[in-house]
Design a protein around this nucleic acid. Structure first.
Lengths: 222, 222
DNA sequence: CCTACCGATCGGTAGG
DNA sequence: CCTACCGATCGGTAGG
């Protein structure tokens, strides 16, 4: 346990939290050690006592986020066990990860832009198990005729990652690109709902009409 | 004309080009005026003779990109006139815009992350006409039963922008997240193809089997 | 965890 | 378009 007796997290954790926030908002070079220290309520040299350099702080921030991701993966894979709403369950758990801390998507996206050669393999490693499950699920669905036969599983997964990452990282900016009349919360809802719908509709075949009490389809539509 | 007699662009244009490149690669704070000046082959004070401040240089870079976008829009809208492959034509022209200069997507994405409140309305203004056409096209398609009735046109457009922007900005990093066996060019192709497929498959209904010889289409909808 | 301080680099200016 | 220079801020260190 790294939390102190009173409710407040200990200093290293508070540094990590504020660094996450400021790196996500202003980027690695745009957020100075002074800014981060001030947000924590200490001086810069004190910060450097806990993290030997700015770059070590960056790596620690990233590592903490990937640890959180690793904790979320079992939940996601459990959601992917069986049942007709597997996809919704995986989607809900994945969205939850980015919703739990709104800094995660922009932080990851910035790292991908700033240091692709360093981050890509790191992400690949952690996303691999998740992606493999989803790809297998897709291929099985294709054999069973539930999934579009022309889906390229790996490329589909990559594009959905793009969609989710960018969707969360810029939804604060892009929701106003839509017509203004909607409230902020409503605009976010519309964007999230459409994000999931796009991911689903591009994956599944339009269900060959075999729900419980339906006749052999053909004319059913609307 | 701003180009000199010999093939080389004039100095301000060369500054804009290098600034675009370095802002896209390292971000606004991460690319110094010294770096940009050196890439052009002049000294920093000379650069500041052409652009009064770093921020003015940033605005000029952005303005040039939006100007290029404005030049692409008529081509895109012309492609959207009529014919069954409207969507492919719009897609091809839009992809061409980002392909013509690989710095455009990351530059725009970085600006959206760094200065959402400044960039969002600016993008909204320039994307509005394009988005309106696409939204009208979607709604017409919905009335005609060619497009999924549960597509939220504005949200769909926003998500496709996300997909394209992030897809181009990070495709260099994420294509290796896929299985490695493919060559770089092939991986890019797979990602681009899947990007278009996702955008299309989530939009159109699975063509109600009434190809060339079209009749009034009364039976297609219950 | 602090004060005091370091060289390097930042954006920008003076002056020609 | 240049050389020479400015104050401010950067990441990081000494020393307690």
């Amino acid at each position: 346990m790294t939390a102190e007796r009173n409710g407040r997290p200990d200093v290293p954790q508070r540094i990590l939290d504020q660094a996450t926030r400021l790196f996500a908002r202003h980027g690695f070079v745009g957020a100075s050690l002074r800014d981060i220290a001030r947000a924590v309520g200490i001086r810069k040299p004190s910060l450097l006592y806990h993290f030997a350099s700015k770059d070590e702080l960056r790596r620690s921030v990233l590592e903490q986020m990937l640890t959180h991701w690793n904790e979320a993966v079992p939940r996601i894979l459990r959601a992917a066990t069986s049942g007709p709403e597997q996809f919704d369950a995986i989607g809900a758990e994945t969205l939850r990860f980015f919703n739990d801390d709104p800094d995660r998507a922009p932080l990851l996206l910035r790292e991908l832009l700033d240091r692709p050669e360093e981050i890509a393999p790191l992400v690949a490693l952690r996303v691999q198990p998740w992606a493999k499950i989803v790809c297998d699920y897709i291929r099985k669905g294709q054999e069973q005729g539930r999934v579009h036969p022309d889906v390229d599983p790996e490329a589909y997964v990559a594009q959905v990652i793009n969609l989710v990452l960018c969707g969360f990282a810029t939804h604060a900016s892009l929701r106003n690109v839509l017509t203004a009349p909607t409230s902020d919360g409503e605009a976010t809802d519309r964007l999230l709902r459409e994000m999931l719908r796009v991911a689903k509709a591009s994956l599944f075949l339009p269900v060959p009409a075999e729900p419980p009490t339906r006749r052999p389809a053909a004319s059913a539509r609307a």
